[in-house]
Design a protein around this nucleic acid. Structure first.
Lengths: 148, 148
DNA sequence: GTACAACCTGAGCCTAACTTAAGGTCAAGC
DNA sequence: GCTTGACCTTAAGTTAGGCTCAGGTTGTAC
């Protein structure tokens, strides 16, 4: 059994955040002793899960839903599996987008290296597509509809 | 020359967002005709840049700073380059973390596949570390300090 | 029996990035 | 000459994910 202060140290999370999670219903099984929260191993597992789900981009309300499903036993396995399948796709998509953004940034680094060497960038043209390698330009232009 | 409505369609951004960006000073060179915003090619380039910087995780205030640097000409090349170098590292880090999260999610998918087959998950143990492959467990356990 | 730390609650505050509401201008079409 | 639609402004509201603070309780040490 751990107090909120011990858990706070353990996970390096502010006490206020843990209370907030509890208020939002993220610890359906958390016990109390004359008002004071008592965290056991199961609550620690729950907190680990919260951290994982948060990292994957889930919001507090979705995490709450997941915790409710957990407390409902094996009838919700399928729902929980679906949640993770969906989240898998989301994260995979996100990684792909980040990779494109990274390519863009790498181009910008190169661009400013050149600009510093040459000293001839057009003042209000922070993204000169004319000199852009075309694979970068493709990513860049994907961000808006064609005109005309 | 484009109106705010045309730009809104072009970039699939709400008009309110474009006005918000303008209010925040993200279009230092935007012109007006009797109050009405007139977007030209340069403003479109600026908006593309805004979208790119946003994707890389930059906040509005940092983007504004960048736009100010752009309007200050070649004396700020170095500052702008540094911004992108920093951002490159940030995005690379983020991709790494996302990759770990993805591994975790993949494990969860597998876990629920098994649970659905066997029907024997421990009810309040949403993350059973005992059956976790150890490379996943390592990622998972990294999230909190050791106890005892 | 009192000092002190650690806990509790509820209400309100905060930031980011928008969004909505209320009220106003202006040109075109009928 | 009035309605419609696209534009404008300022101010306030929203959502997420917390944080802070005032005021109160609990438990252990001396």
């Amino acid at each position: 059994m751990y107090t909120i202060g011990q858990i706070s140290e353990m996970f390096d999370l502010p006490i206020s955040t843990l209370r907030y999670y509890d208020r939002e219903g993220l610890f359906p099984a958390l016990k109390r002793q004359s008002g004071i929260r008592q965290f056991d191993e199961k609550d620690i597992e729950v907190l680990r899960t919260i951290e994982c789900l948060k990292k994957s981009g889930l919001g507090i309300t979705d995490i709450k839903q997941f915790m409710i499903w957990c407390s409902q036993g094996s009838t919700t396995y399928e729902l929980r599996r679906q949640l993770f399948e969906k989240q898998k796709k989301t994260v995979e998509e996100e990684i792909k987008k980040m990779q494109q953004t990274l390519d863009m940034i790498k181009f910008k680094c190169w661009y400013y290296d050149e600009a510093i060497k040459d000293g001839n960038e057009d003042q209000m043209n922070p993204m000169n597509t004319a000199i852009m390698p075309k694979e970068i330009k493709a990513i860049y232009s994907r961000q808006h509809k064609k005109r005309g």
